[in-house]
């Protein structure tokens, strides 16, 4: 959902209570809010007053009440459960945060409900809580549900938590135990043209085996690398995949200490497979867009053969894609 439509959706939700608030005598809501704040100083004794605040006509007063109830902790559990069913999404968020701190609450049950909430913010809050919990089967199930959320932000958070591919890679030149000069004895530029390309807005391409060597990408669009995908007409932030077959010559003579795939710039994160073998990632967040990186592909590359290169790219803002050259470097 675009930002402006999100705004309209929230506005619609808020407009009724705001209209009520606007019709009040000047200062009345402020007085009621102040009364809640003062009452909160009495601790648990303030519970009835604060719980009553959840029913106030003004949403800001309701939110103040919810916050003060959350601060009260366990004594306010019932009130927070009431807040959890408030029509106001901010009150629900506050109540959810308060409830998740309480041991006596069925957290997984509430989080499950939260994933069905109409508010993106509430669902996002739930996913963030799920991500940090011990990964049980039920949590995994909830995350998989969240990975199919309508909102890309929610989906992204859940997908990241479920993402199955990871490999720690230290390029030869950065290995602290490698005390030798490293020379590039052969550099094979990857062609800029002729790549296959598909958007993956639901971030589930890997579940469709898009990384596998024999996946049929013939129906995909074609695209060139060394430019942002926006240049090819894809005005899009999110995940997309690049695939290309390349011809690799016979293995050079002599000692080879490593073969690496070098990317001068992917905006902004990348996960790479060579012949279906996962070789590593460049995943440092939005700051990665201008950072060159290399990944070891010594064991994945096939000499004197056709090789399948697959790159999954995530771009969260501005331009995206493989916008600088890629090459294979043979190191000695």
């Amino acid at each position: 959902m675009r930002a402006s439509s999100r705004w309209l959706a929230v506005c619609t939700g808020l407009s009724l209570s705001v209209a009520v608030a606007a019709a009040e005598a000047p200062g009345a809501a402020a007085t009621r809010r102040q009364a809640l704040l003062e009452a909160a100083g009495r601790g648990a004794a303030a519970l009835p007053v604060l719980q009553g605040g959840l029913k106030d006509a003004n949403p800001v007063v309701q939110r103040t009440a919810a916050r003060l109830l959350a601060d009260l902790g366990a004594p306010a559990q019932a009130a927070l459960l009431e807040g959890w069913s408030s029509p106001d999404p901010v009150v629900r968020q506050t109540a959810l945060k308060g409830l998740l701190k309480l041991e006596a609450v069925d957290a997984e049950g509430i989080l499950g409900q939260a994933l069905d909430d109409s508010s993106n913010a509430v669902r996002m809050l739930a996913v963030e809580a799920l991500v940090r919990r011990p990964r049980t089967a039920s949590i995994e199930t909830l995350l998989q549900k969240a990975a199919g959320d309508d909102d890309d932000t929610v989906r992204a958070q859940a997908s990241r938590a479920l993402w199955p591919f990871h490999r720690d890679v230290t390029p030869l030149r950065e290995r602290p135990d490698w005390d030798h000069e490293v020379a590039v004895v052969q550099s094979l530029p990857l062609p800029a043209e002729g790549w296959r390309f598909a958007l993956d807005p639901r971030r589930d391409g890997h579940l469709k085996k898009w990384h596998e060597a024999d996946f049929d990408d013939s129906a995909w669009a074609t695209i060139a690398i060394e430019q942002a995908w926006e240049k090819a007409g894809h005005t899009y932030d999110g995940v997309a995949w690049y695939r290309r077959q390349i011809e690799v010559p016979a293995r050079p003579e002599g000692v080879i200490n490593a073969v690496e795939i070098a990317c001068d710039g992917v905006d902004e994160c990348a996960w790479i497979w060579v012949n279906g073998v996962y070789v590593g990632q460049h995943d440092i967040g939005p700051a990665g867009w201008e950072k060159a990186f290399t990944l070891d592909i010594t064991d994945a590359l096939r000499w004197g053969a056709t090789n399948q290169i697959t790159v999954r790219v995530l771009d969260s803002t501005f331009a995206g894609g493989i916008w600088k050259p890629m090459r294979i470097e043979v190191l000695r």
Partner: peptide, 8 residues
């Protein structure tokens, strides 16, 4: 917890 939300 905010008092007023202005979505982006």
């Amino acid at each position: 917890s905010p008092d007023i939300v202005v979505p982006t």
